[in-house]
């Protein structure tokens, strides 16, 4: 569909607005992996973080029935791939101290060298992994 980039841009602006509220309001960097990671490894638990996660889960739940066509995740049904991918994402984002939101959105907009380098690395690693697994080995 040709209007997809408009939705992409509009959604992106909302994501950036959320990050701006979190930064200017609470003085924190909106990083999904850091917020969830700190909660689950008990390094930084707070009501503020829990509240962020509630908003992040509740809003798509409320908004989704209003959209047409209804957005789906279309996640692969291969559970081996799902589990390996999940572990790699969880490990990697916490060791690198950031993901697409923290290093990508918040880091690049601050001209942070670490954010820019991390983003180049994870996009490249993702592209190479997908090329190998899908086009060379035909595994996914």
């Amino acid at each position: 569909m040709q209007t997809e980039w408009v939705w992409g841009l509009a959604g992106g602006l909302l994501i950036g607005l959320g990050a701006a509220v979190y930064l200017l309001g609470n003085g924190r960097i909106m990083g999904a992996s850091g917020i969830l990671g700190g909660m689950v490894d008990k390094s930084e638990r707070s009501f503020e973080r829990l509240s962020f996660l509630v908003g992040l889960i509740a809003m798509p739940l409320l908004l989704r029935p209003l959209l047409s066509p209804t957005p789906e995740t279309n996640l692969t049904g291969n559970f081996t791939v799902v589990i390996i991918a999940g572990v790699l994402v969880g490990l990697g984002t916490r060791i690198a101290n950031g993901c697409t939101s923290g290093h990508g959105v918040c880091g690049i907009s601050r001209f942070s060298l670490r954010g820019i380098i991390a983003t180049i690395i994870y996009i490249t690693a993702g592209g190479v992994t997908l090329a190998l697994m899908r086009h060379i080995w035909g595994l996914i």
């Binding site: 572990v87 490990l91 990697g92 380098i117 996009i123």
Partner: peptide
Amino acid sequence: LGSVSFGMGWGLAGLCPG
């Protein structure tokens, strides 16, 4: 290394933490 691991998982499933 963390970003390499994250990127590999992201490419495999198409999901990042957010």
